[in-house]
Design a protein around this nucleic acid. Structure first.
Length: 1164
RNA sequence: GCCGGGGUGGCGAAAUUGGUAGACGCGCUAGCCUUAGGAGCUAGUGGAGCAAUCUAUGGAGGUUCGAGUCCUCUCCCCGGCACCA
């Protein structure tokens, strides 16, 4: 043993020699190389693979890597087979920009940078499995990135589309929505512009629902889930059609009557009158041979005598429908619209018509496609509900013509309904709006379209203020994203004069505006504006003097019953509290308030005698919710009962002092000071008794607010519907779907998430493996002529170019490489051109964790058995900055691969945590330009990797951002040295049994528990502090380290020292290994078992009991764990420090908290 | 504006979830050791006071025997979202 000491730990601690020594040894012995071991439980720990920038490793990398390293080291020693891999996310702009500046090939720069990073990472002793290193820029890697792209393409999830994209004028690159932050380029901060460009897109929106829903099943930090949900932006609502009426439209109606001469024909002149009154031109031709229909003759007549052009709407009734359609096919020129009313029936559809001679005379074959084209989709089929015979046929017709199918109660309605004939409704355009609040439909007093909404262009020519509108559209299109989405700016907009929309709920005509606060790419690009119940609409309406109509009153929020019975809230942990409040005066009204979860809750006092307006109103509400026979309690002049509802499970008392509070005096509201309200008595009531208890009093605060404030504000919440036709009086939330149905709306789900812009016009990225072939496009125009490179020909390698600079036109530098670009089409062998766009750097990082599983596989992207063993990743730690982009993209790809049957799980990561940023001193961001970047190499050189690791873990809570403080590292280094120096005091054998060592045992076991628990919860700072406490304790053992008369300090037991080393090993792997081996251990400490603790030893057997008098600490004494309360009380009273305070005083009560304290309360 | 997370010594931070506020570390003070000290060791270290004691967790108020922790109001900082209908 003595010999070993000499060579090992007796010398001065010198990390510069021991750290590289062990790093080499571990690598040689393949200590951290992971192998699939059937039957052995696995653990896959992952950190985000770094982007090898020219700046070298950042201290922030070390924070995240060390944390996961600690967890992985612990897992290995708990018997898991651990995979902790590392690689390089090496495609990307900084490298390319460097190449542009210097002319050095990006691949060369990348090589140099990764070499630096590798060296730096290795110097820190992370237990990475270096044999699995991957690099996204390696053709052997990106071959499979390209392969995944081809699978996406094959499954219709990749497509090329001309679209406005976010364009960064500085980087000359298209950006995904996710890369635009506050209207600026995420990388360089330049305001982005809009550009039209053909882009490859990935249909991530098809996975929106699953990406949202599956968050339920993964263990991500709540804030990460929230951010993901936020980004996906799921919301449910209704799509509702609002018809437009165009005042000055010069539509000419041609009304073709049926040939049966039935009564409906009488309505036609009426319709003519209605239409003419609206400024339309109407033709009502008398068709010849009405009673002896001859199809050809009728058609000829119509073609000869009626003017049919693109401004014409044909309204055809019964058999006139046949003529109309035949004439139209023959004419073969577009018209403005076609309305078929109760069209006659093809005998095939109904036996009734088989016997009708007229029906047989017609040719029932139509070219439906042609008709659709000629009418531009503006076709309506109107049906009388009573028309039993025809209904099936009419539905068939509507479907064939892709027409609106309108059912009304009678034919009269079609032609001469009170507000507006159905005929007219059918041909006027209708605009879909999306709303999450269809319950407020009756309050929609105007409509707003996004300036880009296609309808604006359609109606533009017919507007009275065309120029003004055009000017506004032009202005809006020139605005940058920042200007446009600045929520604080004043609302602007322009009315479309001459156009009105019809609110389908009440058939009122409402104005139509365009305004840039409505976004064209969300929902339908059009909204119904409900100023009374939406803040933005409110602002807009106030500014432009638009009408405001309240249709929801926040009525039922006010009383506890409503809260108690709100259907969506879990019932657990609710209590009702009864408080008896002293009545402060006669004929006044006690109201208590408190706030919880944003609900203002008011609780009534009693009810006064007589039917004052408030009491009457109260009774009304009370009865409305079903307490018909309820009795009001609360006697005059006596105590008033107030009811409380406590939804917060943590809350054990209700604060009612502050509540208040007003009283009513002569029907006027008078504020009351809290002093007037005295709590008399409070008691708990169980939840079950709520119903019974509720019967007492109920009142509604908002009743007063309504009485007092009037309609002077908007209200966003839900409540009771008013002024909403048949829905008035209903609960707004429950009526939503019914209102939607009543106007023919559809319940839909919308997402903020947009498809992923996957093209980059840059050099340093994965080439998109497709070619464009004109010949193939001619043959099959649907896929745009894009032909995938056959999988066997992958990878499409990135060629070496001379100039890396992107072009101003937005084309990749690859486009200039004609030799590379011009290829043979893999399908037809004709001439074709390669796609010159490359993939964004999110591509390679979306699946790298899968490649780690089988990084060298040349035939598949990973072996399925290996995938089955290792995936999913058990624990993934990374930065918060990647929670919306990288995390979402990789979840999307993973789900897609799961659907393809390639990976075994639908989610890639079981658990996701995040580390806080490391900032420079004074809390600012570390950056080269500020010159405050901390170089890890310098630190390692100065104090060693172990000290750096310990410092980074000790510096503060792992998930919080923290400023770097070089001075503090000294403490970590000192701590390690103290452990090092302890080595000289180790005795050979097990701990001797002495009082001191029994005490030490407890600390040892406590520390084992604490360190283990803290690592799991990522509380590394407190784990280290408990290790420091242990070291302090061991040093003290045997009477302290330094005693005047004793030269050699007292011994520390080897057993305890080894446990310390074992616990410290994940944090400081090198020094612990050195000391461990110096003790004669043959096997690495990192292969040793994780220490177990004895729960009974981890708890104290003796506890300090605090003695308080009147809540002030006066002393303490030691007592056995679990001592009797009476004994504690007796001991406390006998304590001299306490006695002093008790003399001559009367003891009121004594509170004894077992194992903690005794509080003696005096009465005087 | 909305949604999260915070505010505790000179500094980084702990606090078993309502029970001794400031663990652990940095820094600082005094002493020891030393040729030396940007090393090590010992003791001390929230503030006021000689002391007993009082007073302290952004601020104000409250509940409680007892509050950093619960309640009400309010101020500030950080992160996310931001005209998403």
């Amino acid at each position: 043993m003595k010999k070993k000491l000499k060579g090992g730990a007796t010398s001065k601690y010198n990390p510069a020699t021991i750290e590289p020594k062990w790093q080499k040894k571990w690598e040689k012995e393949k200590l951290y190389v992971a192998k699939e071991k059937a039957g052995k439980k696995k653990f896959y720990g992952l950190i985000e693979f770094p982007y090898p920038s020219g700046d070298g490793l950042h201290v922030g990398h070390i924070r995240s890597n060390t944390a996961m390293d600690i967890i992985c080291r612990k897992r290995r020693r708990e018997g898991f087979e651990v995979l902790y891999p590392i690689g390089w996310d090496a495609f990307g702009l900084p490298t390319e920009n460097y190449a542009i500046k210097t002319g050095i090939q990006p691949s060369v720069v990348t090589k140099k940078n990764t070499d630096t990073f590798r060296k730096q990472l290795k110097a820190l002793g992370f237990s990475f499995d270096w044999s699995r290193e991957v690099n996204t820029t390696d053709p052997k890697y990106y071959r499979w990135t390209q392969w995944i792209f081809l699978q996406l393409l094959k499954n219709g999830l990749a497509y090329k589309k001309k679209m406005t994209i976010n364009w960064c004028p500085k980087d000359l690159i298209g950006l995904a929505n996710e890369e635009v932050v506050n209207g600026r380029c995420e990388r360089c901060g330049t305001p982005v512009e809009k550009r039209e460009k053909e882009q490859w897109m990935l249909a991530i929106t098809k996975y929106a629902e699953r990406l949202d829903r599956d968050l339920d099943d993964v263990d991500y930090l709540p804030k990460i889930k929230t951010q993901q949900r936020n980004w996906i932006g799921k919301s449910e609502g209704a799509e509702i059609d609002f018809r437009l009426t165009i005042k000055n439209s010069k539509t000419r109606f041609v009304i073709l009557h049926g040939f049966d001469g039935g009564a409906t024909t009488d309505f036609h002149p009426w319709l003519k009158e209605v239409l003419e009154k609206r400024g339309h031109e109407v033709e009502l031709p008398e068709l010849p041979n009405a009673y002896h229909p001859k199809e050809a003759e009728q058609v000829e007549y119509v073609l000869k005598n009626c003017k049919l052009d693109e401004n014409t709407v044909i309204v055809a009734h019964s058999l006139g429908a046949v003529v109309a359609m035949k004439a139209l096919m023959k004419l073969n020129k577009p018209i403005s619209g076609l309305v078929l009313v109760a069209a006659a029936v093809d005998p095939k559809f109904d036996k009734f018509y088989e016997s009708r001679p007229f029906a047989k005379e017609f040719d029932w074959k139509y070219d439906y496609a042609l008709l659709q084209k000629l009418t531009g989709g503006k076709v309506a089929v109107l049906s009388d509900l009573k028309e039993k015979h025809r209904s099936r046929y009419l539905k068939f017709l509507a479907e064939k013509l892709n027409a609106r199918f309108v059912e009304t109660s009678s034919v009269e309605e079609h032609f001469c309904a009170k507000e507006e004939p159905e005929v007219l409704k059918a041909v006027t355009p209708s605009i879909k709006v999306f709303t999450t609040r269809p319950d407020t439909l009756f309050g929609a007093t105007y409509m707003v379209l996004a300036p880009e909404n296609p309808w604006v262009k359609i109606v533009l020519s017919q507007l009275e203020n065309k120029t003004e509108v055009e000017a506004y559209i032009a202005k809006a299109s020139h605005e940058t994203e920042i200007e446009r989405t600045d929520a604080t700016k004043e609302k602007t907009g322009v009315e479309l004069k001459g156009v009105k929309a019809v609110n389908p709920a009440n058939n009122e005509e409402i104005p139509v505006w365009i305004a840039d606060y409505v976004l064209s790419d969300y929902g339908t690009g059009a909204i119904m504006a409900v100023p009374a119940h939406d803040e933005r609409d409110w602002e807009f309406a106030k500014k432009f003097g638009l009408p405001i109509r309240h249709v929801v009153i926040p009525q039922r929020i006010g009383f506890p019953g409503e809260l108690a019975f709100r259907p969506n809230e879990p019932v657990v942990n609710r209590r009702v509290i009864r408080a008896v409040v002293k009545h402060w005066s006669d004929n006044s009204y006690a109201v208590l308030t408190w706030k919880d979860n944003g609900w203002k809750t008011f609780i009534s006092g009693g009810i006064e005698e007589g039917e004052d307006p408030v009491t009457a109103a109260k009774r009304e509400i009370f009865e409305e919710i079903g307490y018909k026979n309820a009795e009001f309690v609360g006697p005059i002049g006596g105590p008033v009962q107030a009811k409380f509802y406590a939804p917060n499970k943590k809350q054990n008392r209700i604060d009612i002092q502050q509540g208040l509070l007003f009283k009513l005096k002569n029907d006027e509201r008078v504020d009351v000071s809290p002093d007037e309200l005295k709590i008399h008595e409070m008691q708990w009531l169980p939840w079950e008794s709520l119903g019974e208890f509720m019967k007492g009093t109920i009142m509604d605060s908002f009743l007063f607010e309504r009485l007092n404030s009037g309609n002077n504000q908007y209200f966003i919440g839900s409540g009771i519907l008013i002024d909403s036709g048949q829905f008035s009086g209903r609960d707004s939330e429950s009526a939503m779907k019914e209102i939607t149905e009543s106007v023919g709306g559809k319940w839909v789900t919308k997402y903020k998430l947009r498809d992923w812009v996957f093209s980059r016009q840059r050099y340093w990225g994965e080439p998109i493996p497709v070619v464009h072939c004109d010949a193939c496009e001619a043959k099959d125009p649907d896929n745009g002529g894009w032909v995938p490179i056959p999988e066997k020909d992958l990878p499409v390698k990135l060629p070496v170019v001379k100039n890396y600079k992107p072009t101003q036109t937005g084309e990749s530098p690859l486009a200039a490489m004609t030799k590379w670009v011009n290829v043979k089409c893999p399908v037809c062998k004709g001439p074709a051109k390669r796609e010159t766009d490359t993939m964004p750097n999110w591509a390679g990082s979306s699946w790298y964790y899968l490649r780690y599983v089988d990084p060298k596989n040349a035939t598949r992207f990973a072996d399925s058995k290996k995938l089955k063993y290792w995936t999913p990743v058990d624990w993934y730690n990374g930065g918060m900055e990647h929670t919306t982009l990288h995390l979402l993209y990789s979840r999307f790809w993973h789900k897609f691969l799961f659907d393809q049957g390639v990976v075994p799980t639908s989610e890639p990561y079981t658990k996701r945590t995040s580390h806080g940023l490391i900032l420079a001193e004074f809390g600012v961001k570390m950056s080269k330009s500020k010159g405050n970047v901390v170089n890890p190499d310098t630190i390692v050189k100065a104090v060693g990797a172990d000290a750096l690791r310990v410092y980074e873990m000790f510096m503060g809570p792992f998930d919080q951002p923290i400023a770097w403080d070089t001075d503090n590292i000294a403490g970590s280094r000192r701590f390690i040295e103290r452990v090092w120096n302890m080595r000289q005091r180790i005795t050979g054998g097990a701990a001797e049994s002495s009082p001191a060592s029994a005490q030490t045992d407890r600390i040892i076991h406590k520390t084992i528990k604490k360190v283990g628990d803290d690592i799991e919860a990522m509380r590394f700072n407190t784990a280290i502090s408990s290790l420091m406490i242990l070291v302090n304790e061991l040093e003290k053992q045997g009477g302290g380290r330094r005693e005047e008369e004793v030269e050699i300090p007292a011994a520390i037991s080897r057993e305890n020292f080894e446990i310390l080393l074992k616990l410290l090993a994940p944090f400081a792997p090198h020094v612990t290994e050195e000391l461990w081996v110096s003790l004669g251990n043959k096997k690495s400490i990192h292969l040793s078992d994780w220490p177990a603790y004895d729960a009974s030893l981890a708890a104290d057997d003796e506890v300090k009991i605090i003695v308080q008098v009147n809540g002030k600490v006066r002393g303490s004494f030691m007592a056995k764990q679990g001592a009797q309360m009476e004994d504690l009380e007796r001991l406390a009273k006998g304590l001299p420090e306490a006695k002093k305070w008790l003399e001559g005083k009367q003891i009121g009560k004594v509170i004894v908290v077992p194992n903690r304290l005794v509080n003696i309360v005096l009465t005087n």
